[in-house]
Amino acid sequence: MPTSEELKARIEAAIPGSHAEVEDLTGGGDHFRARIVAQAFAGLSRIEQHRRVYDVFGADIGGPIHALSLQTRVEQE
């Protein structure tokens, strides 16, 4: 069962320079919310920013991770 810490680590490893806060919404290890700030999001539309994060998890989304709610933001210098 995935944990918030695991999701945070996977996001931060896959998106260089990103900072993620991940909450397990139910405590059940399957519904998460993540807030991610990254310079890598600069120039990307919201859709593209979210896709970038979803891509980190591939088929785990809809599998072990039933729901991952996202808020993405471009890091300001």
Binding site: R46, Y54, I61, G62
Partner: peptide, 20 residues
């Protein structure tokens, strides 16, 4: 190229899922 449901399309274009 979007893994989750729901998905909203307007005039043929994906606008996003619930968060967006």
């Amino acid at each position: 190229n979007w893994p989750t449901i729901p998905q909203l399309f307007v005039r043929g274009e994906l606008i996003g899922g619930c968060d967006i």
